[in-house]
Write a protein that binds this DNA or RNA. Structure first.
Lengths: 129, 129
DNA sequence: AAAGATATACGAATCGTTTCGTAGAAGTCA
DNA sequence: TGACTTCTACGAAACGATTCGTATATCTTT
């Protein structure tokens, strides 16, 4: 339930591409870094043992699939990260991200919407609950 | 420049308490988890070798001090985290934090201010630059 | 001075992760 | 069929982080 960095890389491929063979995943990974086929294989086998991936045999191939969701996993990692790096202060983290990021107007608009939802009193009233 | 989790724990003590001896740090750490004195000692020695901590001898004690700043370090960890866990999408991270956090009105207000700064066009004009 | 507490230094065991070499099974092709 | 390629399985090396035992020096206390 707490993937390592390498495992996270693999999960991201599977989230993006859907169920894949070891070769497909390895192909993708080796575009960004040096990694041998058997390394990827071993990692995915371990992840299968750990229950992070499911595996179905199709002929001579094994097709793997992520068993944990992207959002769910990100949330989990995020919680941990806030704790360890920001000593629990989520707001401090948000401020720091925003302060240093170049958000598009589109994104800022969405963000604004979210804030209005969170803080109904402070703004023009939307609708009654 | 990229502290491990244990190192981060120690840094946080030093950031909070200022320059400290091994014993003081260890005292603090052992409140939250099981850790032997020599373990803390060794960690701090290594951090000193790595250049993460400075060390001054006072009598028979060594007084250690963080050589990297808290904000600076958090920013660095944050950048890395956004990359690995959120594939670079800082905004997605912000949304997810905000969606799941109970921010105080005070915090939301600050956040609002920050957003207005970032997005001058979209809101009532503040002042000319 | 002797005993005990407390400091640093250091080597080494342990642990989890990552990496790869090698072996054997199974498919492909000439 | 024989040579090649391409799977999976598996053991083990390599690496970094963490942990601790032990040795030695230094202070404190009686």
């Amino acid at each position: 339930m707490k993937p390592t960095e390498s495992e996270l890389e693999i999960l991201q491929v599977l989230w993006e591409k859907g169920p894949s063979t070891v070769r497909q995943v390895n192909e993708h990974l080796s575009q960004t870094r040096d990694i041998g086929y058997t390394t990827t294989l071993k990692l995915m086998q371990i992840m299968h043992e750990k229950g992070l991936l499911s595996r179905t045999e199709e002929g001579r191939y094994h097709v793997y699939q992520a068993l944990i969701g992207e959002e769910e996993t990100q949330q989990h990692l995020l919680d941990r990260f806030v704790d360890t790096a920001f000593r629990g202060s989520a707001m401090k983290l948000v401020m720091q991200v925003l302060g240093n990021s170049k958000a598009t107007p589109r994104e800022l608009e969405e963000l604004q919407k979210l804030i209005n939802q969170l803080n109904p009193e402070n703004n023009e009233p939307d609708e009654q609950l």
